[in-house]
Simulated scan of single mutants.
Amino acid sequence: MSKDLGFGKTKLDLSGFEPQPKAADDEPLASADAVAEKAGFVSREPVERLARVRKPAEPYDTAYIRAPVSVINRLKAYCNESGLSYGQALEEMMRKAGI
């Protein structure tokens, strides 16, 4: 078994090798993004997450309410229709009641 791995003792003749000149007048290469889009690739770059801007407010606390399902359903329906959170809805109802 030979141990020269195909390299042998002779040198490789590269005298006829010349790189081809870059064609400057040919149509410009499309950007990598355009080629990827045309091929249907989807970017895997991470999407920038925006930080939530919170209004300065007073501290929060939790109030647990036990009430009949019909009352809780009415509260949830009111919040869904008005777009208010439970806390905002409670504040609105207390304001209307004068409390």
Results as ranks from 00 to 15, higher is better:
2 S>V: 15
2 S>Q: 15
4 D>Y: 14
5 L>R: 11
5 L>W: 02
5 L>V: 08
6 G>N: 07
7 F>I: 12
8 G>E: 04
9 K>H: 15
15 S>I: 11
16 G>L: 12
17 F>L: 15
20 Q>C: 12
21 P>L: 07
22 K>D: 15
23 A>D: 12
24 A>P: 04
24 A>Q: 08
25 D>A: 08
28 P>G: 02
37 E>Q: 05
37 E>P: 00
38 K>W: 00
41 F>V: 04
43 S>P: 02
47 V>M: 06
48 E>W: 09
48 E>N: 05
49 R>Q: 06
49 R>E: 04
50 L>C: 07
53 V>I: 03
55 K>H: 05
56 P>L: 01
58 E>C: 13
58 E>N: 15
58 E>T: 14
59 P>R: 04
60 Y>N: 11
61 D>G: 10
61 D>T: 09
61 D>H: 11
62 T>F: 02
62 T>K: 06
62 T>P: 04
62 T>C: 14
62 T>W: 04
63 A>T: 09
63 A>P: 01
63 A>Q: 08
67 A>C: 09
67 A>Y: 02
69 V>S: 01
73 N>I: 08
76 K>Y: 10
79 C>G: 03
81 E>K: 05
81 E>W: 12
82 S>M: 12
82 S>V: 12
83 G>F: 14
83 G>N: 10
88 Q>V: 12
88 Q>T: 07
88 Q>S: 10
89 A>F: 05
89 A>Q: 11
89 A>P: 08
90 L>P: 05
90 L>M: 05
92 E>R: 06
92 E>P: 03
92 E>D: 10
93 M>V: 14
93 M>Y: 11
95 R>L: 10
97 A>E: 10
97 A>Y: 13
98 G>K: 15
98 G>I: 13
99 I>R: 12
